[in-house]
Design a protein around this nucleic acid. Structure first.
Lengths: 142, 142
DNA sequence: ACGTTATAATCAGCACATCTTATTATCACT
DNA sequence: AGTGATAATAAGATGTGCTGATTATAACGT
């Protein structure tokens, strides 16, 4: 661990990079990536959401979401249905094929979390979670 | 903050993404990015390092580093010199033009850190840093 | 001394996540 | 009916990473 790693930005970026490696290693045989998993999870909790609203939830640009939906749709995990009340809009739904993928995501996330948090007790884990949530809030506004 | 954000992997990835946005916003008029900044910082502390060794330090593939060195060299921030003792190898050096960039990096990192850590006292910041370092160690091995 | 193997860098080509700018269809409001 | 906003998308770019193949050089074993 060099001194450079002590800087917060690099430390956070490094942790995220390592976590993503770990996540991907657990998903080697799956069409999923962390970003796609993130999208599926949000979709599970917000089925029927419009693309523009999901993009805002994920804090990405609508066009970025279009591409991700294209991929997930081509893999048969997500379905676009035109909104009957607004023919400009598409509403997004998970397919049956997506359900087992969501289970895999949950297992993978649990495995990565356990590996990442080895040596931290419950209180420390709660503190870390709370601190990261605070960081997200701080960086989100403005 | 949805329930999905509570999952550790997504929370960490989200925090890193927001941090990177913030970092980039602070560097809008610069040729630097977070990855390039990371490389320059490691280079500052290890001038004359060979590419393969820097790649290992950064935990990226040598080819990935070649591209980054190409970019930084084309911007005049980094210089390749052939190793007199091993004509296969290049040793990397910062140019004078890189020094002010390193100052900018330090300022940007400080600004981002302050924005990210608003509302956390010194003890909480130290805990967060320690926890993230532990996470990095945990995810690094294996 | 020579041949094999390992190493350093690079070429070529790809994948993913992300952006910006512009376009099209549709909606909402006046 | 006309104007402006909105939803999705097209087109094209960038940044960050990968794998596999290639070239030059070094190191080692016999």
């Amino acid at each position: 661990m060099t001194r450079a790693e002590l800087d917060f930005s690099l430390l956070l970026a490094g942790a995220a990079r390592l976590m993503r490696h770990s996540f991907m290693a657990n998903l080697r045989d799956s069409p999923l990536t962390l970003a796609r998993a993130r999208m599926l999870i949000h979709l599970e909790r917000n089925e029927g959401i419009r693309q523009v609203d999901l993009a805002e939830l994920l804090e990405i640009q609508p066009m970025t979401l279009v591409r991700m939906v294209d991929q997930l749709a081509s893999e048969g995990l997500v379905e676009r249905r035109t909104d009957p009340a607004d023919r400009r809009a598409h509403r997004l739904y998970l397919t049956d094929a997506a359900r087992p993928q969501l289970d895999i995501i949950a297992e993978t996330a649990a495995a990565v979390r356990e590996k990442a948090l080895v040596g931290l007790d419950e209180a420390e884990r709660a503190q870390l979670t709370a601190a990261l949530q605070r960081v997200c809030r701080n960086l989100s506004d403005g």
